[in-house]
């Protein structure tokens, strides 16, 4: 698959193709690959470890000067992987927004969210804490529909 994208460094891919045989043309490819690799690393770093995409199973190769086709394939592969990482990042952000909204509504009307739990992991923050809607005085609160939010004490 060849992705034609003029947005990468504003370089016209047709010009790249024409210059591919030259050192200058290859250097442009190298710059693109380095730029995309940094972008991929930064995007993946924002993901929770459990959400990080696994690298594709590839046979271990040895370092060599890449041909034009290999350079193109490397660039396109990186672009595709950035796309996957960005999708995962968007899903992670949506999940965190949902958890924040749930916590806000739980705090306002705990009785509507019986036993619901939101953790700092859901919110994407570093502490270890959980908020849970629980009945006040146990069975009495359950019978009287009297609920409150209980916050855990933090990290063990």
């Amino acid at each position: 698959m060849t992705i034609v994208d003029t947005s990468v460094f504003g370089v016209d891919p047709r010009a790249l193709r024409e210059n591919a045989g030259t050192v200058a043309g290859r250097h442009e490819f190298y710059e693109q690959i380095a730029h995309l690799e940094r972008e991929l690393t930064e995007t993946v770093a924002k993901l929770e470890p459990s959400r990080r995409p696994r690298p594709p199973k590839a046979a271990a190769t040895r370092p060599h000067v890449l041909s034009y086709a290999e350079l193109e394939r490397t660039r396109d592969d990186l672009t595709a992987r950035i796309g996957v990482a960005e999708d995962l990042l968007a899903r992670q952000s949506a999940g965190r927004s949902g958890a924040r909204a749930l916590l806000k509504r739980m705090s306002e009307v705990p009785a509507d969210f019986r036993w619901a739990t939101v953790t700092t992991k859901d919110l994407g923050t570093k502490e270890c804490r959980a908020w849970q809607s629980v009945p006040v005085l146990g069975p009495i609160g359950m019978l009287g529909n009297w609920w409150r939010i209980r916050m855990s004490s933090g990290c063990p």
Partner: peptide, 18 residues
């Protein structure tokens, strides 16, 4: 490490594999 990762890509190595 970021610089090495970029170089690995440029010489055909996947830095998450090698």
């Amino acid at each position: 490490p970021s610089a090495y990762r970029a170089f690995f890509r440029q010489v055909g190595l996947d830095p998450d594999v090698v």
